[in-house]
């Protein structure tokens, strides 16, 4: 039996709100959301393999307003998880722990992932032939 009276780290409720909390929780949530989004990827791959009719159906479904909303939440989740993931990799290398660097990289993740999402949306709706 492990000892029951080991010191525990403080519970969430004890902390004042900090941006680092939100970002950490959001990293998990986007990870979970992207795992669900991978179903859309598999569905799309199956649709390509299944032939033009099924593919057309998939395009209609993914192109519907709800499909588009889901797509853009997945796009933002991907960019966020990607940028914050790179931030995590720098921490793993022992860099970026200073308070100042912590905040700068944190806000950069928001700005860059937001900007990438906007650029992706603009590209999607201004390039190529629309159905």
């Amino acid at each position: 039996m492990a000892s029951d009276n080991r010191p525990l780290s403080p519970h969430l409720g004890i902390y004042r709100w900090q941006i680092s909390m939100t970002m950490s929780i959001l990293h998990r949530l986007t990870g979970i959301w992207l795992s669900l989004g991978s179903l859309a990827l598999i569905y799309w791959l199956i649709a390509v393999a299944a032939g033009p009719d099924i593919y057309a159906m998939a395009q209609t479904l993914l192109g519907s307003w709800i499909g588009q909303v889901l797509m853009w939440t997945w796009a933002f989740s991907l960019f966020y998880h990607l940028c914050n993931g790179i931030r995590h990799l720098f921490w793993d290398a022992g860099r970026g722990f200073e308070i100042r660097a912590f905040y700068i990289t944190g806000y950069s993740v928001w700005i860059i992932s937001g900007a990438l999402t906007v650029v992706a949306i603009l590209f999607a709706y201004t390039h190529g032939s629309h159905p």
Binding site: Y55, L78, L82, A124
Partner: peptide, 28 residues
Amino acid sequence: TAVALIPLTLWFVASVLIHMHADYVTVL
């Protein structure tokens, strides 16, 4: 796996954006 996914996902997102409105034969 995270490091490997950086280039792979960026490539995939770019590919999806390029082929978003493409017809079936182009995607095939």
